[in-house]
Design a protein around this nucleic acid. Sequence first.
DNA 1: ATGTCCCACGAAAACGGTTTCGTAAATAAG
DNA 2: CTTATTTACGAAACCGTTTTCGTGGGACAT
Lengths: 334, 334
Amino acid sequence: MGITIKQIAADLNLAVSTVSKALGDSYEISAETKARVFEYATKMDYKPNPYASSLKRGRSGNIAVVLPEVSDSFFSSAIDGIEKVAQEKGYHVMVYLTHEDVSREASIIREFRHGRVDGVLMSVSAGEKKPDHLQDLSASDIPVVFFDRVYEEIQMTNVVTNDFESGYLAAKHLLSKKCKRLAFLSLEGNLEIISHRQKGFEKALSESGIEGREHSIIVLGNDEQENLKKLASKFKSKTRPDGVVGSVEKVAMQVYSTCHALKLSIPKDVKVIAFSHLAIASLLNPSLTTITQPAFDMGKMAATLLFKSLDKKGMKPETIVLKSELIERDSTRM
Amino acid sequence: MGITIKQIAADLNLAVSTVSKALGDSYEISAETKARVFEYATKMDYKPNPYASSLKRGRSGNIAVVLPEVSDSFFSSAIDGIEKVAQEKGYHVMVYLTHEDVSREASIIREFRHGRVDGVLMSVSAGEKKPDHLQDLSASDIPVVFFDRVYEEIQMTNVVTNDFESGYLAAKHLLSKKCKRLAFLSLEGNLEIISHRQKGFEKALSESGIEGREHSIIVLGNDEQENLKKLASKFKSKTRPDGVVGSVEKVAMQVYSTCHALKLSIPKDVKVIAFSHLAIASLLNPSLTTITQPAFDMGKMAATLLFKSLDKKGMKPETIVLKSELIERDSTRM
DNA sequence: ATGTCCCACGAAAACGGTTTCGTAAATAAG
DNA sequence: CTTATTTACGAAACCGTTTTCGTGGGACAT
């Protein structure tokens, strides 16, 4: 291990407390002594033992990021943004994956109450509504910022996008492309973010008001094979949708797979628009029309808010809304 | 915060040491007392303060994962594997991104010497060869496992894939598709993994021995715009390659972009094969022939090896080689 | 000369565990 | 009944910092 403060004190004939204060640039210590300590400390590459500091100060210098998964490009970009801010602030990032498993999420979160991290960034996992652990977490004195997948029941700091509006625009977009049978590909688990998108979708449809238009909600889950089966049966039926809104990246990919397998042409037979952050959406076959969230900036923003409330406790919860962008590509061209 | 051991001791009229030993299931404590302590502890949801334990025991329960980036699907899958093993073992995962910046990598690593993590999993960043910090790290008493992007100069535990062979097979594959002018898209920064792939590529070419075939090495960097410019100029020239091997996922995507922009047809004008882990390779336009590394398993393996050497110090360095798989898709079909 | 103030530093008590060592009581051995 | 051994627990040191509280000595005012 590295050198300790005790060792420095001994080597310089000082008291431990003096060295500690010198390193902390305390006014109690003369410039002369400080210089002597600093020089020796840097020479010996002294770094305070993180456990000892944490134990004494009650702060760890760590933040937790709790996510459903990391393979989704939205989440990986968000991590990118979070890590950047954290590194600037000298914080360390601990990553926890829930894989949409609420009980795992709960047990992860429970650990946080006993120290280890000073704050939590979180995107909640889908699953039966069991908010007890979230409630507990928010009730604890450790600050939490939710991003993207928030949980509105509890009053917390949130970073979200304009999901309702985006869902609305997505449906509008499909309607403007003459789609007659729209489907919204939902995700099981009562995520608010999904239901907002869905409500926007439904509003656009009810506004359009024209009879002869149908729409359906297809609820998909976490099991890819199951989803593909379900999609295949939907797309084989006579009343198959001719325009779909993918509520998350994953399901859009599954629609692509299904259409490829069934030899359905996108966009001729089915037009597809999806909430997705894929950098390579433009390289897909066909290129995918997306509603792209500012994932990196959301991560940065969430982290920034977290650090703000770490700096001064007792901040009021606020909700930041960032804008998504609809980027039209071939998958919805007429 | 949670309840402390001291509080438990007071509440049960026991000494602190007794409680600690009871919780540790020490033989010194009677079954009766243990039961009493256990019951009370679980009732109060006691968890040991991680800083205090770490300080005393000299172990943190954290491991570090140091990566160039997280947006690459190889790395995100690897994290997935790592996190899974860590969670099973009760360890916590700290993620650090270098963004291919060697000096940042160095400063990140330097922190590790002073505690905070018990072990390090690492994929080194490209960049001028400055192995001092890696040398230091491996010389320290904290175990390190390199995966994928290893640094062979120092004798360490490595988890890699059969890169030479894969590079060889990639070139063979293109040759079998009648490509005449092959290009290897390299990455600046002297990564061994890249040079292995390149050497395999070159071996296949030299074996083929037929005159009239050319090959070139195109070295790309970390700046996407620069790369696109470089690629465009290469692909505009009369002797543009008709078959390329992308050494990493990112450059393959850049080739796609370039070809789309220049209206070059893949695979008619240019055949593309790339080292990539993209789950959606099959959905690209056209679907991409890949050499797919077992990213998830590599992460799992690396983590497993790390924990093994955490359990018993002084393990011999070993190198595990996992096999990549060549999956042919449309981007190289004749 | 005496009292007051500040300066620069040291001693010691935390933080919350773990671990070593000592010891009273209970049991076994003689 | 005495002595040795085990059993079950407590006291205290310790991990490396931070922080509170003293304190000796010099400067200053009275």
